[in-house]
Amino acid sequence: MSDEARDETTTGAGPEDAGTERLARAVRAAEDALIEFEIAVETYRIEVENFSRLHEQRLGPLYARIEELDAGIAEAIAARTKDPEDERRAREARAAVTPMPLVSELFHGWLDGEGFTPEGYAMLTDQSVQPPPRVRPGEEARKLYRELARRCHPDLVTDPTERERRDAFLSRVNQAYARGDEEALRELTEEWETGGDQRPEPAVPAGDELYARLEWLASRKELLADAAAALEDSAIGSMLRMAEDDPDRLLDEVADGLRRQIATKEAELARLSAAQE
C-alpha cells in the first residue's frame, strides 16, 4: 500500500481503537521490511542466475575442450600401452564427451548431450535468450530496479487480481534488471507512473484481518529466508562469495586458469601423438 492509502487505516475512516491502530502500524512496518527483504533476495537470485548463465557461456567451451583433450590423451596412452585398464579409461573419457545420438533433433536444437542449451532453457523459463552482459548490473540499474520494485511489488496489496497483475509487471522488471537494461527500467518506471497503480480503495481492516495479515507477512519472510539460504549454499552462491566485489573478474580468472590447462594438455597430446609416429 502507498503511505496515503495505508494511513486511511489509522485516520478518520480507520479504526478508532488504540490497540488496532498500533496493530495497523505494525502491519505497515512489517510490509515495508518484507519488501526490502524481498528486493534483496531477488537481487541476489538474479546475480546467481546471471553468474550461472555466464559461467556456462564463458567457461563451458573451455571445460568441453579439456574433456576432449583428456579423452585424446587417454586414447593415445591406451594405443601405446595396449593395457586393458588404459583402454577402459580411454573409453570412459571418450563417452564423457560424446553427445547422445539424435537427442538434439528431438528438441530442434534446444537439447544436447549436456542438457538444455542456454537458448532452450531461456525460452522455457521466459528469460532473455541472450545471456546478460555481466553478472551484476550497474549501479544505476540497481537504483532504478530497487525504486520501481518498492512501488509495484505484489506484496503491497491483498486483492488477488491486483497481485496477479503486479506479479506479471514485476517479472518484466526483473528481466530488465537481469539484463542491466537501464533504458527498459526507465520505460517501465514511466509505464507504472502513467497507470500502473490501480489498487481499489482499501477497506478498513478489522483487528482479526490485521492479525491475519501480520501472520502472512511473517510466514512469507520465513519462506524467503529459506530461499536465500538455499541460494547462498548452492555451488554458484559459494563461488559468488569468493568474489563479492567483482564476480565477472572471477570468471575471467577461472577462464585464464582453464586456458593454461588447455595449453598444457595440448602439448601433452602433441607429444604422445608424435611418439606414436
Rank of each mutant, 00 (worst) to 15 (best):
C152V: 14
C152D: 06
C152A: 15
H153S: 15
H153Q: 14
H153G: 11
P154T: 09
P154S: 05
P154W: 02
D155P: 04
L156I: 01
L156C: 02
V157F: 13
V157E: 11
T158Y: 00
T158P: 00
T158Q: 11
D159V: 10
D159W: 01
D159S: 13
P160I: 11
P160F: 08
T161D: 13
T161W: 12
T161A: 13
E162F: 06
E162Y: 12
R163D: 04
E164H: 13
R165S: 10
R165F: 10
R165I: 10
R166Q: 12
D167G: 05
D167Q: 13
A168D: 14
A168E: 13
A168G: 07
A168F: 03
A168S: 10
F169R: 03
F169C: 02
F169M: 03
F169L: 04
L170F: 07
S171N: 14
S171Q: 15
S171V: 12
S171G: 14
R172A: 11
R172H: 12
V173H: 00
V173N: 04
V173D: 00
A176Q: 05
A176E: 03
Y177A: 03
Y177T: 01
Y177W: 04
Y177E: 07
Y177H: 08
Y177C: 04
A178F: 01
A178E: 06
R179Y: 01
R179T: 03
R179D: 02
G180L: 09
G180W: 00
G180M: 01
G180A: 12
G180V: 03
D181Y: 01
D181G: 01
D181E: 01
E182Q: 10
E182T: 10
E182F: 04
E183L: 15
E183F: 15
A184T: 10
A184F: 00
A184V: 00
L185N: 05
L185Y: 06
L185V: 03
E187K: 12
E187Y: 01
E187I: 05
L188G: 01
T189Y: 08
T189I: 05
T189M: 15
T189R: 15
E190P: 02
E190L: 13
E190T: 15
E191P: 04
E191D: 14
W192L: 11
E193T: 06
E193W: 05
T194G: 11
T194Y: 08
G195N: 06
G195C: 11
G196W: 09
G196D: 12
G196T: 10
G196I: 08
D197Y: 15
Q198M: 04
